[in-house]
C-alpha cells in the first residue's frame, strides 16, 4: 500500500512539512534548521537518544523484535538442504492435523488448553504453532516490500528532483498516475492476474508501492539541492551521481525512514486483507489474514452456539498488535528525527 500522506501535488498541495514554501514561511518547530543539516551525524545521534526516551516507541520496538524472533525460531529453517535454524518454538508443524496420529482425542475447534494454548483450528491444527509460523509470512513480506520500494523510491525521487525540468515533469506524472489508484486495488489486480503466492504478493505490493517514496524524496531533494554545500560540491565539479548519493540522498533519509516504518504496517494489513479476500496465499497456509478468512464463518454460530473466538481473535490481534507497534515506532522515529510525518492515511486501505 502506498502511503499517501505526502500528498504533494506538484508542489502545491501538501501535508504540512513537505511544502517547501510553507516550511520556510512557518516558524521553526524544532531547533533543527536547514543550516544545521551539515551535521547529519549529530541529528541521528540526538534522534536516537530521543527515541530511547520514548517509552511507548521502545515498548513497541520490543514487541516487534519479539514477534520477529518468535516467528523465525518457530520452526527449523532449511536453506538448500542445510538446517540454518534448528530451534522450534512451535510445538507442532503448522500443517499437522492433531487428531490424525498425534492425539486422537482432539476435536476441531477445541478451546485453548495447557497443551494447545491458543486452541485448535477448524482443521484440527494447533493455532499457537500456526500463529507463530504465520508471522513469517506477514513480517517478511512487510520488510521485503518496504526495503524494495523504499530503495527504488529513493533512487527515483533523487533522480527526478535532482535533474528537474522535463525529466522531473515526466517522472512525477508517472507517480501521479500511480497515485490515482488505491494501492489495495492495484495489489488485488496483480494477484488476480499472477495468482496467489509469496513472491506474487511481494510483487503486488512492490510494483507500484514505491511511488510514495519517490514523491517524498523528490520533495526533499528539491529543498536540499539549493543548499550551499550542494551548490559548492557542484561548483567544485563533483559528478552528478556523487552529488546525489553523497549529499542529497542522506539528507532525505529521515523522512524516508519514518515513511518506511509506517509503511510496513500498511503492507502487513494489505497482505492480510488479500488473504482475507482469499486472494493471497494458499488457503491452508498459516498467514494471518488467510487464517481469519478460514474461520470467518465461525463468527456466526447457531442459536446458543459457542463461538470459537480463539480462531478469530488471535490472528486478528496478531495483525493489530504488529501494525500498531510499527505505527508507534514510526511515530517515535518521527518525533525523534523531527521528520514531521503526520502518519495520515496509513490504515492499509489506501
Amino acid at each position: 500500500m502506498t502511503d499517501r500522506n505526502i500528498h504533494e501535488d506538484r508542489g502545491r498541495i501538501q501535508v504540512s512539512g513537505f511544502d517547501s514554501d510553507r516550511v520556510r514561511d512557518r516558524e521553526p518547530i524544532s531547533d533543527w534548521t536547514d543550516e544545521s543539516s551539515g551535521e547529519t551525524v549529530g541529528r541521528w545521534r540526538r534522534g536516537f537518544r530521543k527515541f530511547k526516551r520514548n517509552r511507548s516507541a521502545m515498548g513497541a520496538l520490543v514487541v516487534v523484535v519479539v514477534m520477529a524472533l518468535a516467528s523465525f525460531f518457530a520452526r527449523p529453517v532449511e536453506m538448500f538442504g542445510v538446517v540454518v535454524q534448528p530451534f522450534s518454538l512451535a510445538p507442532y508443524d503448522p500443517t499437522t492435523i492433531l487428531y490424525l496420529g498425534v492425539d486422537s482425542s482432539v476435536n476441531v475447534y477445541d478451546p485453548p488448553s495447557w497443551q494447545y494454548p491458543m486452541g485448535v483450528d477448524g482443521s484440527g491444527r494447533d493455532l499457537f504453532s500456526r500463529l507463530l509460523v504465520g508471522g513469517r509470512y506477514s513480517l517478511s513480506i512487510g520488510f521485503i516490500v518496504v526495503g524494495l520500494t523504499a530503495s527504488f523510491g529513493l533512487i527515483y525521487g533523487s533522480i527526478s528532483g535532482y535533474y528537474g525540468g522535463n525529466v522531473d515533469e515526466l517522472m512525477m506524472r508517472i507517480v501521479d498516475t500511480i497515485f490515482a489508484f488505491p494501492g489495495l486495488i492495484l495489489a488485488l489486480i496483480i494477484v488476480a492476474i499472477l495468482g496467489g503466492g509469496y513472491w506474487q504478493l511481494v510483487l503486488a505490493f512492490s510494483l507500484f508501492g514505491w511511488a510514495g517514496y519517490g514523491r517524498l524524496v523528490r520533495g526533499e531533494v528539491l529543498k536540499i539541492k539549493e543548499n550551499e554545500y550542494v551548490l559548492a560540491a557542484k561548483a567544485l565539479g563533483a559528478r552528478d551521481r556523487s552529488v546525489v548519493f553523497r549529499h542529497i540522498a542522506p539528507n532525505a533519509m529521515p523522512p524516508l525512514i519514518v515513511l518506511a516504518s509506517l509503511n510496513i504496517g500498511s503492507v502487513v494489513i494489505g497482505v492480510a486483507a488479500l488473504g482475507f479476500l482469499g486472494l493471497g496465499l494458499d488457503p491452508s497456509s498459516a498467514e494471518w489474514g488467510t487464517m481469519l478468512n478460514a474461520t470467518r464463518s465461525t463468527l456466526i454460530q447457531g442459536p446458543g452456539g459457542q463461538i470459537p473466538w480463539w480462531a478469530t481473535v488471535y490472528p486478528g490481534a496478531a495483525i493489530f498488535i504488529f501494525v500498531m507497534s510499527m505505527n508507534m515506532i514510526g511515530d517515535g522515529i518521527n518525533d525523534a528525527l523531527d521528520a514531521q510525518q503526520t502518519g495520515v492515511g496509513r490504515g492499509g486501505e489506501d
Binding site: G265, I269, A272, A273, F276, G289, L292, R296, L299, T312, G316, I319, F320, V323, M324, N327, M328, D331, G343, G345, R346, G347, G348, E349
Partner: peptide, 14 residues
C-alpha cells in the same frame, strides 16, 4: 493510533 492500525475487515467482523 488504534484506528489506523486495526484491519478494517477484522473491525467489521467484530
Amino acid at each position: 493510533l488504534s484506528g489506523i492500525s486495526i484491519p478494517n475487515f477484522w473491525l467489521g467482523l467484530m
